[in-house]
């Protein structure tokens, strides 16, 4: 029983920390009139707080893992939300289809190949450089 209580308290503690970062980001966004999502700013601040040791990993580990594991479920209502835009979709279906199909494929392919080849090139460059030193 104690163990379960500890787990619940640990989860609540992690949740409170995450929401604290959200509130701080909201204040930043409001004060600076910055057109940016407070959740994303919260992510950046949260990662920085972890990197600089302001927050300990064990305080948030379980809560973060829970939210990351269930992330896809939180997005499901967005798909149902497409129903609201039925008429917008029907009016522009061809261009929307082409843009999603071609432009997204192009972004996936170009980014993927750029990084894949870039990493290979850097690896070869390092090998060549270290080989040169040996000579």
């Amino acid at each position: 029983m104690d163990n379960i209580l500890k787990k619940i308290l640990n989860f609540m503690q992690g949740f409170a920390i995450l929401m604290f970062f959200y509130c701080v980001s909201m204040i930043f966004v409001k004060i600076l009139h910055f057109a940016f999502s407070p959740a994303i700013l919260g992510l950046v601040l949260f990662a920085l707080a972890l990197i600089f040791g302001i927050i300990k990993e064990e305080w948030i580990k379980n809560t973060c893992n829970f939210f990351i594991d269930n992330m896809a479920m939180f997005l499901v209502p967005f798909i149902a939300g497409l129903l609201v835009y039925k008429s917008v979709l029907a009016q522009n279906w061809l261009v929307i289809f082409l843009v999603i199909f071609i432009a997204t494929t192009a972004t996936i392919v170009f980014t993927g190949l750029f990084v894949e080849w870039g990493l290979k090139f850097l690896r070869l460059y390092k090998i060549k450089k270290s080989g040169g030193k040996h000579d």
């Binding site: 999502s37 990993e57 992330m71 997005l75």
Partner: peptide, 20 residues
């Protein structure tokens, strides 16, 4: 269902953990 979407906020901030 909007309460489920709201959980996307802590879920997005949680992504700071794998980055760390």
């Amino acid at each position: 269902a909007s309460y489920i979407t709201l959980l996307l906020i802590p879920a997005t901030i949680s992504l700071g953990y794998p980055i760390y």
